[in-house]
Amino acid sequence: MTTAHTLVAEAVTLAYGDRTVVEELDLRVDDGRITVIVGANACGKSTLLRALARLLPPSGGRVLLDGKELHRQPTKEVARTLGLLPQSPVAPEGIVVADLVARGRSPHQRLLSRWSGADDLAVAEALDLTGTSDLADRVVDELSGGQRQRVWIAMALAQRTDILLLDEPTTYLDICHQVEVLDLLTDLNRDRGTTIVMVLHDLNLAARYADRLVALSRGRIVASGDPSEVLTPAVIRTVFGMSSEVVPDPVSGRPMVLPVGRHHSGRLAATA
């Protein structure tokens, strides 16, 4: 269903004005897998994602999509292979769900081209996959946070890209909606082979859903690989400056991080 792609960052340096956020970073995105980027606030996670999506030109190094420099390719062409859901997209006032999702078809349309049956099909499929078909005629402003996030994902799905980048797709959602969104993305990855790269805040959900975890600190990759290799107390100390215990998650068997703060750590002291 999807064709193989390569998305590679080669020694990229990313900066906003004089402020360098990411320095000489190398990352090869695994095709057909789920990569999750974690790190403390302001470590360059979102910046890296923006560079991978062609939104931020690197001040050094380069980002290659299928071997071609990303910033040398037209935006529209890139948008047919690579989709991005930014952290807080804005829905125009009063727009209905189906119209918003339909906007995901834009990269496939020309100036005067007619809307086609294939476009309708892509929209309908995106609504079904995200469980938002019942909401199709509702106004986006009236939806709950979880519903709205699923609608935005539906828009990204309607774009039908083989690579999907998401910046904190679970922010502002309660735990059940977070799991729902991550399950949905996993379905998409397994059923269609969509390559997924996302930034997540919750380490335990990241460990649960990632095929590959990338831990970022001050614009550099500290550790990268299987969640069980990356989520160690040592890495967590480097990335977040925090003590922790890592135990196997009783549900998935993946690593689970238990933070150790100054309070309520009595049992730890007792066993130590």
Binding site: R54, L55, G83, V90
Partner: peptide, 9 residues
């Protein structure tokens, strides 16, 4: 950002 991701220059 969202517009650029949809192919808008």
């Amino acid at each position: 950002d969202a517009a650029a991701a949809l192919g808008v220059p």
